[in-house]
């Protein structure tokens, strides 16, 4: 097992190395070069020269690359142009918000997606099946930001039962220990703050979770359809096992492998979706920060973020692979 993990991590090295080279070249090919991007409108020739010297952009490319890699390996992603604070620090304060949002989105997607997909397969060709296929089709084709608008309009404006934007009502003077607002409220015993933060998560969470939901429904349905006619399921029936056991231990468990893979693959989708969802709901997470970074061409932030996401993405897929061995012991043997 450890060897498998080690091998997978080793495979990650060339990809990340390649990515770092591409990002390095990316920054250097920004219009006007990195100094102009840094200075924006204040880019007078003297200022550009000063910045080039200060940051070493006037050094030979290879020297620049080694400096850049050296810093990167020490976890130094540079300083954000917008806020003037270290990129990593900015991530640390904003990432909890996006994690909270993604967790709500995933719980929604998995909690509804798997049962719905399973039901569709059990009632193959019937109304429940057609209904869920149509629903998942709509879920896939509707743009996240448009869905965010619809939800916001319906449940925050037309029937104002949920807050339209933000992470928490600023009037609740909540204490923040971890920057996970719901968790903070629970830890400090400020349950009204936790509840309020949770209410703020519902609409963006639904918007963000809908595409993963649609995809999970489809995969679960397809996977259960394949498995439920397998020979071992027929054998289990012939042995006279209880239907509950057959469904839980034989069908569902075997059908879960592709579903788990798919859930792992949703990470990229969630991050992209978060940029759009957080923009609509003025939700102060990493997505919204990223949107500002795009606008200001805050390249240290973009650069750091892309590397960060690539690592995260790879780690999540590793966890997915490890979870296979728990779901399906046969994988362990191979």
């Amino acid at each position: 097992m450890l060897r498998v993990i080690g091998k997978r991590l080793a495979l990650l090295v060339p990809t990340l190395f390649g990515l770092s080279v591409l990002l390095f070249l990316w920054v250097r090919s920004l219009p006007g070069g990195p100094a102009t991007a840094l200075l924006g409108e204040r880019a007078t020739p003297e200022a550009v020269a000063r910045v080039n010297e200060l940051y070493g952009f006037d050094q030979p490319l290879l020297t620049q690359y080694f400096t850049y890699m050296g810093k990167l390996l020490q976890g130094d992603f540079g300083t954000s142009i917008i806020t003037g604070r270290p990129v990593l620090e900015e991530f640390a304060t904003r990432f909890p918000a996006t994690i909270e949002l993604s967790v709500v989105a995933l719980i929604f997607a998995i909690g509804i997606g798997i049962p719905l997909g399973y039901l569709a397969a059990r009632h193959y060709g019937k109304l429940a099946d057609h209904g869920s296929v149509v629903l998942s089709l709509i879920g896939i084709t509707i743009p996240v930001f448009f869905l965010a608008f619809i939800l916001k309009y319906l449940f925050a404006i037309q029937w104002p039962i949920l807050p339209p934007d933000g992470r928490q009502n600023p009037r609740i003077n909540a204490t923040h220990v971890t920057d996970f607002y719901v968790l903070d409220g629970l830890l400090t015993g400020e349950f009204d703050a936790a509840w309020d933060a949770f209410l703020h998560l519902i609409l963006p969470g639904l918007a963000l979770g809908t595409i993963p939901l649609a995809i999970i429904v489809r995969i679960t349905r397809a996977s259960v359809l394949e498995v439920q006619n397998a020979d071992y399921v027929r054998t289990a029936r012939a042995k006279g096992l209880m239907e509950k056991t057959i469904r839980g231990r034989f069908i569902l468990r075997n059908a879960m492998l592709p579903v788990v893979t798919t859930i792992g693959l949703q990470t990229g989708l969630l991050i992209s979706g978060a940029v759009l969802t957080e923009t609509v709901f003025a939700f102060n997470g990493i997505g919204r920060f990223l949107r500002d970074a795009i606008f200001e061409l805050d390249y240290p932030v973009l650069q750091g973020f892309i590397i960060f996401i690539a690592v995260l993405y790879a780690l999540i897929n590793l966890i997915v692979d490890i979870s296979y061995t728990i779901i399906d012991p046969r994988v362990r043997v191979q």
């Binding site: 990809t15 990515l19 090919s29 991050i271 996401i309 993405y313």
Partner: peptide, 19 residues
């Protein structure tokens, strides 16, 4: 191709558009 795939689609598109 693996490197390109390690970055979420929308982010990749945004980075290219930035250049």
């Amino acid at each position: 191709v693996d490197i390109l795939l390690s970055v979420p689609n929308l982010l990749l598109a945004v980075s290219i558009a930035a250049i």
